Amino acid sequence: MSKRLVAMGDSFTEGVGDDDPAAPNGVRGWADRVAEQLAAREPDFRYANLAIRGKLLPQVLGEQLEPGLALDPDLVSLYAGGNDLMRPKVDIDALLVAYETAVARIRATGARLILFTGVDGVEDPLFRTIRGRVAIYNELVRGIAARHDALLVDLWSMRQLCDRRFWAPDRLHLNALGHTEVAIEVLRVLGVEHPLTSPEPAPREVLSPAARRSQNLQWAREHALPWVRRRVKGESSGDAMAPKRPTLEPFGSASLPR
């Protein structure tokens, strides 16, 4: 059983979309849920989460890799690249060369490593435009995981995540239902028994064409345009953010934010 988990990455690992005002950075997420289950089985368990929203793959590796390894983890989760794939231009092969170098660095410490593929965005107009990029990224990640004996959580194969009811209103991040699904899959890959159950989403909302257009316009004003403005300015939603759990600390029912 793992005693020291360090999670690295971007908004996916930070937990954005799974709002919890009582939690650090105001979000919970799949990694916190996994940490809670591991802590319930290991009294000496400690957990750190260095992930920060908006980070590109080179930033995740440059800012989190060595500080994370300095914590001497025996289990690491790493996901990065999703924000890069959404840029107008991206060299996926070059990104994954750097990614594999980081994977080799982590595995050389003896720590177990969890990697992730990207989600299939087939049901969303925005994500569907980069579906081919994500598929290429995923194949490269699968090869890296195989070469370095890393555990792989295949989000692409989790077809329930194609259902937009598992996503936050910004359409970019999983909501609490989606993060719970990911936590369940991570625990399955780790071989850890747990009491978590797959959540049942609310019934699908049936909208008229006019109502759907209105909803899309509201989404564009509240989420899409601010995202575009930040990209034009070279800014990120995580520029003023600090890691939610920068050091290894106990994480159990007594310390779990609610």
Rank of each mutant, 00 (worst) to 15 (best):
Ala242His: 15
Pro24Glu: 06
Leu196Glu: 04
Asp239Glu: 12
Asp93Phe: 12
Gly54Met: 00
Leu50Met: 06
Arg164Ala: 09
Arg213Ile: 08
Pro246Tyr: 10
Val90Met: 10
Lys3Ala: 15
Ser255Gln: 07
Asp93Met: 07
Val119Phe: 15
Trp227Ala: 15
Ala7His: 11
Gly62His: 04
Pro24Val: 02
Ser11Glu: 09
Leu57Phe: 09
Pro67His: 00
Ala70Trp: 11
Asn175Lys: 08
Thr247Glu: 14
Ala98Thr: 13
Arg107Asn: 06
Arg229Ile: 14
Ser236Lys: 09
Glu42Gly: 01
Glu185Trp: 04
Leu5Thr: 07
Ala102Leu: 05
Ser157Gly: 13
Arg212Pro: 06
Thr180Pro: 09
Ile184Gly: 11
Lys89Asp: 14
Asp91Glu: 05
Val192His: 01
Glu123Asp: 15
Leu196Ile: 06
Thr247Gln: 15
Ala108Gly: 00
Arg46Asp: 00
Gln59Ile: 02
Pro246Thr: 05
Glu205Ile: 13
Ser2Arg: 15
Arg231Lys: 13
Leu71Ile: 02
Ser236Ala: 07
Thr101Pro: 11
Leu115Thr: 04
Asn138Met: 00
Glu63Leu: 12
Pro67Asp: 03
Arg142Gly: 05
Arg221Met: 14
Gln37Trp: 10
Glu222Asp: 14
Arg87Met: 15
Ser214Asp: 15
Tyr137Leu: 11
Asp91Val: 10
Leu50Ser: 00
Phe251Arg: 00
Arg204Val: 04
Arg4Tyr: 05
Ala80Val: 00
Thr117Cys: 08
Asp93Tyr: 12
Glu63Tyr: 10
Gln218Met: 13
Gln218Asp: 14
Leu75Glu: 03
Leu113Lys: 02
Val206Asp: 15
Pro24Gly: 09
Glu36Trp: 13
Ala211Ser: 11
Arg221Leu: 14
Arg133His: 11
Ser236Asp: 07
Glu139Gln: 14
Leu71Asp: 06
Ala210Thr: 12
Ala31Phe: 04
Glu100Tyr: 03
Leu151Met: 15
Leu190His: 08
His148Ala: 09
Asp149Met: 11
